[in-house]
Write a protein that binds this DNA or RNA. Structure first.
Length: 232
DNA sequence: GACCAGGCACATC
DNA sequence: GATGTGCATGGT
């Protein structure tokens, strides 16, 4: 997604439904104030640690890093791989995540003199390409860093987003990451605050109601028990 | 005990 | 290019 899709010129039926989805979620839940982190480096750490892990467990690991006074780039590099992995244990796949976090820190250290702000100041296309070049950073993690740490206008697609948009028949169930992202970005203004809020709201409602196997009929988005939703 | 969680890399077909 | 698999803890 080097060149974001331009906004489609005229009102589009799917756009109205997407906007309605956003409005309904925003009325129901209000502002989510994401990303929950104190520093930009902590956003990056959280983005890596929450890969295939519940956020609660990523938080535990972040707290352990903080307790070890290791919540900054240099401190992460100063830890031995074994020690870093031990601190990350609660987030699951901890050896893997220790490698990934270290790879990120090593990259910033090598390419940007340890200055995270310099990496984050790159033009969006370059920033995204560079992030994707770091082992352990795929599209979702790269976009989460670009949006939540760098404040860039890019929409993050996660499992909830796909599931919810597919169940509302806004995208096909088999739509891949780039397609879902292009769908949202072609229908909404490229506003970081909006992309932030929409993604956070989708995760919020998804955690409660949009499980892989649907099991609740009282969702505010009115899924039926097969996980399908009426047209918005 | 099974399923799930704010994915990614790599092997294999 | 599509699909399968390892990574691994902690909550429900």
């Amino acid at each position: 997604m080097l060149a974001p899709p331009p906004l489609l010129p005229r009102p589009h039926p799917l756009r109205r439904r997407l906007v309605r989805l956003y409005d309904r979620l925003h009325r129901r839940y209000g502002p989510q104030r994401w990303w929950p982190a104190r520093t930009r480096f902590e956003v990056v750490v959280g983005a890596i640690l929450t890969q295939n892990a519940a956020w609660r467990n990523a938080e535990r690991a972040i707290a352990r890093l903080r307790g070890a006074d290791a919540l900054d780039l240099r401190a992460v590099l100063a830890l031995t791989p074994t020690r870093l992995a031990a601190l990350l244990r609660p987030s699951g796949t901890f050896r893997l995540k220790a490698r990934r976090l270290r790879a990120f820190a090593a990259h910033v250290s090598r390419r940007h003199g340890g200055r995270l702000d310099r990496l984050l100041a790159l033009p969006l296309g370059e920033l995204r390409a560079e992030l994707l070049g770091i082992p352990g950073i795929g599209p979702e993690t790269a976009d989460a860093i670009a949006l939540y740490a760098a404040g860039r206008p890019i929409f993050v697609v996660d499992a909830y987003t796909r599931r919810i948009l597919a169940r509302h028949r806004l995208v096909r169930p088999d739509a891949d990451y780039a397609l879902v992202q292009a769908f949202v970005m072609s229908h909404l203004p490229h506003d970081p605050a909006l992309f932030n809020e929409l993604h956070a709201l989708l995760v919020r409602v998804g955690k409660e109601y949009c499980r892989p196997r649907p099991r609740c009929a009282v969702c505010p988005l009115r899924y039926d028990l097969r996980g399908r939703a009426p047209r918005l």
